[in-house]
Nucleic acid binder design. Structure first.
Length: 484
RNA sequence: GGCGAAGUGGCCGAGUGGCUAGGCAGAGGUCUGCAAAACCUCGUACAGCGGUUCGAGUCCGCUCUUCGCCUCCA
């Protein structure tokens, strides 16, 4: 089997992955700013990193996964202008900022839970780490990398060699030429960015600091919390591509200027979700809210849809694409269900080659689309084996189940549990339904026995109309509730 | 203007220079009373033009097009 290779945005190559501390992997992923419900873009990001974490754990490492919650409202415009987003939402909802951030934090985790995204080990909030951020800022001032200007603290980009090395934006003078960055009177250099902002009188979320009442800049929370929980050098830092610049370049500058050590060993950036080829974003009105999407599609279908493309590729959202995923996923679920219900036979199925190919795909920079492709190939081989009269031996059956439950279940998180797969009708009334169905199927099989196909087809059609599907097999008639 | 990514069959979407990606949809077939499901077979896909090579979707160059970032953003 191959070993894990990860595409490092910093070197722009795939590199073999070894953690800094043997057996332990530290991961920090930029979390959401909580002033609205999560959308499909959030889902792509956090589902992707969920698989990263699950796979690295599967490889035997202890993973410490930190994902922040940005609950300090940053500004709607650029680093210095506009309204605080959370405060704005609070005004719209006629409440206060803390209630907004709390409510949408809960909403975020609800949605992620439904997508099967495992909770991070630590989900620190920016508001809960103001002292840490102040301490980092003070350290930067002390070292001459930051300065005060009218109660605001700015990071001095000129003081840090290599600013912009992640995004490739290293020539600051070239940046200003055609860009939209405006010269601020209290910044020494246009590229300097805010570490601490003085609060205007109407500003609600503010804290006391050595520089007066204010609030932290956006970039500083990630550096402060990452270093607090994971150390000054971490293995993996993940986030959306749109955050490479300026956010991640600023994080690097702050952290490395303060510590003199490398901040992150592997930078991972996931790509965007687009709608009709255009980025889905909060500021555009084209985002697809997850709660809305869940009313039309099983969250597992959304997860599967996301993992069918690679995390570094753009994913174009459309109903036809997602419907194709729904059909494909149910095919996989059906194969697994069939396996669970299959009587023991004598046939064999060699699972090892499929497992090796799946692991290779995941080791190759978490290539989930290829991994899913292999699982489909496996499902085909499995169905073929089950079609044969000799079926599958108990041993092969267990190996096949183990493969599916490990890769499709544990690692990719796209497989329902055994209970869910076997339950025709979960919940209230299920038992009664089973009994009624067995009566109907018995009547139908009697009709078929006396070749009264008009009657048997009537029973089937009426059930179809109620969303219950029948399948006649050599072992009798199976039924299932059609779900979508 | 600067930095970066990408253009693959009807749709989605992988792809390390030679060996089938995969899924959805479609066509034909096996099985079945008929269906459904499953399985088998089928599409001469790689934006265009040059070049390197015995051989390129895969490397190089040019052209065209699209997208992201340079402002909050997963």
């Amino acid at each position: 089997m191959s070993s894990l290779h990860i595409y490092n945005s910093l070197s722009r190559t795939k590199e073999p992955f070894e953690p800094l501390v043997p057996g332990m992997v530290s991961i920090y992923v930029c979390g959401p700013t909580v002033y609205g419900h999560a959308h499909l873009g959030h889902a792509k990001s956090y589902v992707s990193f969920d698989v990263v974490v699950r796979w690295i754990r599967k490889l035997g490492y202890r993973v410490k996964y930190v994902q922040n919650i940005t609950d300090v409202g940053h500004l709607t415009d650029d680093a210095d202008e506009g309204e605080d987003k959370i405060q704005k939402q609070a005004r719209l909802e006629k409440t206060d900022p803390m209630e907004i951030s709390q409510a949408y934090t809960r909403s975020y985790f609800e949605d992620m839970d439904r997508l099967g995204v495992l909770r991070p080990n630590i989900a620190p909030t920016a508001t809960g780490h103001i002292p840490e951020q102040i301490a980092l800022i003070a350290r930067l001032i002390e070292k001459g990398h930051a300065y005060e200007s009218n109660g605001n603290i700015y990071f001095s980009v000129d003081s840090f060699e290599g600013y912009g090395k992640l995004s490739g934006r290293t020539d600051q003078s070239a940046l200003q030429a055609g860009g939209r960055v405006e010269q601020r009177s209290d910044k020494r250099s246009p590229s300097d960015f805010a570490l601490w902002k003085k609060a205007d009188p109407g500003h609600l979320m503010k804290w006391m600091s050595p520089w007066g009442e204010g609030y932290p800049g956006w970039h500083v929370e990630c550096s402060a919390m990452s270093m607090k929980y994971l150390g000054e050098t971490i293995d993996i830092h993940g986030g959306g591509m749109e955050n490479k610049f300026p956010h991640h370049d600023c994080e690097i500058a702050q952290a490395e200027a303060a510590t003199g050590k490398p901040y992150v060993r592997f930078w991972m950036h996931n790509n965007m979700v687009t709608v009709d080829g255009v980025k889905m974003g909060k500021s555009l009105k084209n985002f697809v809210n997850l709660k809305d999407l869940f009313t039309a599609y099983d969250p597992l279908v959304i997860r599967f849809f996301i993992l069918q493309s690679h995390y570094r590729s753009q994913l174009d959202f459309s109903d036809t694409a997602i419907q194709a995923s729904r059909t494909g996923l149910s095919k996989l679920q059906e194969a697994c269900r069939r396996l669970l219900e299959a009587p023991a036979g004598t046939g064999r199925l060699d699972v090892a080659p499929f497992a090796a190919k799946t692991a290779d795909a995941l080791n190759d920079d978490f290539n989930t689309p290829v991994a899913i492709g292999v699982i489909f190939e496996f499902a085909k081989a499995l169905n073929s084996a089950l079609d044969r009269p000799e079926g599958l031996s108990a041993e092969s059956r267990n190996e096949a189940l183990g493969y599916l439950e490990t890769y499709a279940g544990e690692v990719l998180g796209i497989l329902k549990s055994r209970e869910e797969l076997l339950a025709n009708e979960a919940g209230e009334g299920g038992e009664t339904l089973e009994e009624v169905m067995s009566v109907l199927l018995e009547l139908r099989s009697q009709a078929r026995a006396r070749k009264d196909f008009a009657m048997s087809d009537t029973i089937r059609d009426l059930l179809i109309a109620k969303g219950i599907e029948l399948k006649d097999t050599k072992d009798g008639t199976a039924w299932s509730k059609k779900r979508d």
